[in-house]
Design a protein around this nucleic acid. Structure first.
Lengths: 216, 216
DNA sequence: CCTCTATTTAATCGATTGTTAGATTAAATA
DNA sequence: TATTTAATCTAACAATCGATTAAATAGAGG
């Protein structure tokens, strides 16, 4: 709420790449909170200390700005992708693998919200063949589950659906912690996170156990 | 808790209720697809075959119309609430209980989407102490889990978090089936639903088993 | 028939939207 | 030093938003 002296300040006119990054930082938070239609370019510009024209100069249009935000999100997942060469096999390792996605969601809290929004608005507006961002993640998890099954350390679960079930629960949790902790009467957010993490891990380990499941 | 201003009590001349219901039908679909900010009253009015002024006459404002839609959603869950007197105890029964929520989500497909939207937009706009719609559901599931634990038929899981984990996965699934089935290369939607249901059930049963889980 | 009230519409309001044009500034280049 | 380019601003555009107003329509009771 302080639009005093937008950029001026430090003598230099504030180089371009920094402005661009700052706009993206602001935009991703506002888009996550209000959605695409619910966020105005002027809101973004004001909080980034620039004007709407600057946004247009750097990103072209609102849709392209939104696309740039989504691209950054997709990149942020890369470091959390499982390492390809040594494929884990036992249930605990697979659970630990999927838990890394929870780490990502907690490290980039509003990204999960944005991802959820995209999930809902995708079928509506036929975007230009945009890939689903979590698909490689889910495929990697499913591959790990399959590897465990071939080695006999993982029971006969549905690989893709199990991965999707878990990532869905994680995304849903990350996007709603604020509402949730008030709802479950939790004082500290850390407690909610701990309880969810434990529940997620227990759920995965129990399900992937070679003995359990499979009596259709 | 009703605004008694619009429809004046028990007057005879009511060609209105049908209009009102039809507007709600259209509104809930458009709100689910585009969100609150992304849906215009003119779009709703046009597809409902009325004008914007008629919407204002029946609902007062856009926010109140949205509230009316949410109220209908809350009502639609009631028949799917678990029966209170005979509390199920074994894992399979608890899983069947939670599966009813999946039934609800599949019966009212876009309701899950709207619920997800509300979940994200709630912390943003400080709504007037609106309760979370799924809270009674989750509490009922948690109570069933606790009952099973006291009877020794359910293992030492976190009751609320387990219920929340499951309902989160269900909501996420229901709101994204369209995207998902293309993503997992599924031909028929029924197949995706079947696979998810089985995975959900297996996950719950495996986790609630008295032997499993609990090695913190 | 007329009258009253509930319902709906057409027309319009002011505010806000994304976008654009032109001016201005600072740095880079020749 | 003169010129060009990059970056940002102010101001304004047409379009659309939710909301309002006054008038028209419909239907039942007398």
């Amino acid at each position: 709420m302080f639009d005093i002296e937008p950029a001026r300040r430090a003598g230099r006119p504030l180089g371009a790449p920094e402005t661009r990054r700052n706009c993206l930082d602001v935009a991703e938070r506002l888009f996550a909170a209000g959605g695409f239609a619910g966020t105005g370019l002027r809101d973004i510009a004001a909080r980034a200390g620039v004007t709407g024209a600057t946004l247009a100069y750097h990103f072209g249009s609102k849709e392209k700005l939104y696309g740039a935000v989504l691209a950054r999100i997709a990149d942020s997942i890369l470091p959390y992708l499982p390492p390809t060469p040594p494929m884990p096999s036992d249930p605990a390792s697979v659970a630990g693998l999927i838990e890394r996605f929870l780490d990502w969601a907690l490290d980039h809290r509003h990204y999960a919200t944005l991802l959820l929004r995209e999930l809902m608005e995708n079928p509506d507006r036929a975007r230009k063949a945009k890939r689903w961002y979590l698909l490689p993640l889910i495929e990697a998890y499913a591959a790990a589950i399959r590897a465990g099954q071939e080695r006999g350390t993982v029971g006969p679960v549905d690989p893709e659906m199990t991965a999707f079930h878990a990532t869905g629960a994680i995304t849903h949790f990350a996007a709603s912690t604020v509402t949730i902790q008030r709802m479950l009467a939790l004082d500290h957010e850390a407690e909610a996170v701990d309880r969810f993490r434990r529940t997620l891990r227990d759920s995965l380990v129990a399900m992937l156990a070679p003995a359990a499941a499979g009596e259709a």
